[in-house]
Amino acid sequence: MDGFSVNVWIILAAALATYATRIGGHLILSRFERLHPRVEAALNAVPAAVLTTLFAPAAVFNGTAEALTMAAAILIGLRLPMLATVFIGTAIVVALRALM
C-alpha cells in the first residue's frame, strides 16, 4: 500500500483511536447494572468539565485582549444565545486587538 502517504496512515490511526473513545465508554460502562451516585455525578459533570479545558487556557495565555474578551463574553453569554455570544465576542477581540 505504498500509494498512501504517512499522513494518511496517521489520519486513519487517529480516526480509529477517536472511534474507540466514542464507543468505548458505552462498551465498558454498560456492563454495570446500576451506577453509583458518584459515578452518575461524575458523568453529569463531563461536558462542562471537558469543554472548560478547551477555552480556559486560551483565555489566560493569549494576552490581555483575549482575557478581557472572554470575561466580557461570559457576561454576554449569561444573557444572549450562543451564536450571538460567539459573534459579539469575536467582534470584541478584533476591536481590542486593534486598540491594544
Partner: peptide, 17 residues
C-alpha cells in the same frame, strides 16, 4: 485580523454556559 482564531474558545465557553 478577523478574530477567527478566537472563535473556537468562545464557542466552547458558550457551550459550557
Amino acid at each position: 485580523e478577523f478574530g477567527i482564531d478566537f472563535l473556537l474558545p468562545l464557542y466552547f465557553m458558550a457551550l459550557v454556559l
